[in-house]
């Protein structure tokens, strides 16, 4: 099992490096251009559409939270959708899963290894993005007055991990439940986008406010408050609980899966045991 985990991590090394550099660069660019854009952004700060989009660009803290802290996990979502839906359905499509299942490993071990590998990869990517952004903050601190410390920015970016983890586990569940990767990726993309839009729209449209609890992004604080009040551990726990729930669903549906058959869940026969 350890050897499989090592292999899974090693095979993700390229993606980890690429995504870490890209997201660190994203933080670097937006933090370093802020001093030049400060006045224009201040004027835009009161625009209701920006507020609805949860972009509080009127202050540096709001800008960093809205752009860097909020968007890094959103962009990382692309990697999550690609990778998590590839684990079961994708590997089944490519014939790798049949080879893995012929080894003396339980299905639970196989899916757990894959879940751990993607979770670690996403954590490392966020950590590097956080380090890069914190380093940039240290560089621009002389030209901006702010309460944000490199450490608090690092923690704020890492606070995107629970929501990332939840989407990883949903992707893993869809990948083990649906017959092919295309369906799993389509549904996860839909869930990701609607969840993000639902959270921003419920800010904008008061009549939709009650729906905000249904959006996973509601439990991810990407407002300037994160730098004063810190990470909301209650919300993080809700997301981690959901991640655990979807992981259990993924394990259960993988146990039931007739690998190589590709049937939809309602077409699958009831198992004898």
């Amino acid at each position: 099992m350890i050897n499989l985990l090592k292999h899974e991590l090693r095979s993700r090394l390229g993606a980890i490096v690429g995504w870490s550099i890209s997201l660190a660069l994203f933080g670097f660019i937006y933090l370093s251009i802020y001093p030049e854009l400060r006045d224009q952004l201040f004027l835009l700060g009161d625009t209701s559409l920006w507020k609805a989009m949860k972009f509080e660009v009127g202050s540096f803290e709001g800008f960093v939270a809205s752009i860097v802290v909020q968007l890094i996990p959103v962009y990382l979502g692309i990697y999550i959708i690609i990778t998590s839906t590839d684990t079961i359905a994708g590997e089944e499509d490519r014939g790798i899963l049949e080879l893995l299942l012929s080894l003396p490993l339980t299905r639970c071990q196989i899916i757990a290894v894959k879940a751990i590998a993607i979770s670690v990869a996403s954590f490392v990517i966020l950590a590097f993005a956080g380090l890069g952004s914190s380093f940039t903050l240290q560089m621009v601190k002389g030209s901006v007055e702010t309460i944000i410390t490199p450490w608090s920015l690092f923690l704020a970016i890492l606070s995107g991990w629970p929501i990332t983890l939840t989407f990883i586990m949903i992707g893993l569940f869809l990948s083990s439940y649906l017959p092919n990767r295309r369906s799993a990726a389509s549904i996860l993309t839909f869930l990701f986008i609607t969840s993000y839009l639902a959270e921003t729209l419920t800010n904008y449209v008061p009549s939709l406010e009650a729906l905000k609890y249904l959006s996973l992004f509601y439990y991810f604080d990407s407002s300037a408050r994160i730098f004063t009040e810190g990470v909301k551990f209650g919300d993080a726990l809700i997301l981690l609980g959901l991640a655990a729930f979807f992981f259990v669903l993924a394990v259960l549906s993988f146990q039931r899966r007739n690998v190589t058959v590709g049937a939809w869940p309602w077409q699958r026969a009831k198992l004898s045991k």
Partner: peptide, 26 residues
């Protein structure tokens, strides 16, 4: 190989059930 699970009946290898004792068999 317990890659597909039977809806009825069972398979054994070395006297062990392919589904329940798959790891030992494999």
């Amino acid at each position: 190989m317990d890659i597909i699970r039977p809806s009825k009946g069972h398979a054994t290898i070395f006297g062990q059930d392919c589904q329940n004792e798959g790891v030992a068999i494999r």
